[in-house]
Simulated scan of single mutants.
Amino acid sequence: MKFLCTSAELVDASSRGFDIAGQKVFAVRREGRVYAYQNRCPHRGVGLEWQPDQFLDPSASLIQCATHGALFLIESGECVAGPCAGQSLTALKCREDAQGIWVQG
Rank of each mutant, 00 (worst) to 15 (best):
F3W: 11
L4C: 14
L4M: 08
T6W: 00
T6R: 14
S7T: 13
A8V: 01
E9K: 10
E9N: 15
E9C: 13
E9Y: 07
L10C: 12
L10D: 13
V11C: 05
V11Y: 00
A13N: 15
S14R: 12
S14E: 13
S15Q: 10
G17D: 13
F18C: 09
D19G: 09
D19Q: 15
D19R: 15
D19Y: 10
Q23P: 13
K24F: 14
V25S: 07
V25E: 07
G32V: 04
V34Q: 02
Y37Q: 10
Y37L: 04
N39V: 04
R40S: 09
C41V: 02
P42A: 00
P42C: 01
P42F: 03
R44M: 13
R44T: 04
V46A: 06
V46D: 07
V46N: 11
E49D: 15
E49M: 11
Q51L: 11
P52T: 00
F55E: 00
F55Q: 00
D57R: 02
P58T: 05
S59I: 00
L62R: 12
L62E: 02
I63T: 03
Q64I: 10
Q64E: 14
A66S: 13
G69P: 07
G69I: 01
A70F: 02
A70K: 08
L71C: 07
L71W: 05
L71Q: 13
L71Y: 06
S76V: 06
S76A: 07
G77R: 11
V80Y: 09
V80P: 10
G82S: 05
G82E: 05
A85E: 14
A85V: 08
G86K: 07
Q87N: 06
Q87E: 13
S88Y: 12
S88M: 09
S88C: 14
T90R: 15
T90V: 15
T90Y: 12
A91Y: 03
A91I: 00
L92D: 00
L92P: 02
L92V: 02
E96S: 06
E96I: 00
E96A: 05
D97C: 07
Q99C: 00
Q99H: 06
V103R: 01
G105H: 15
G105Q: 12
G105I: 05
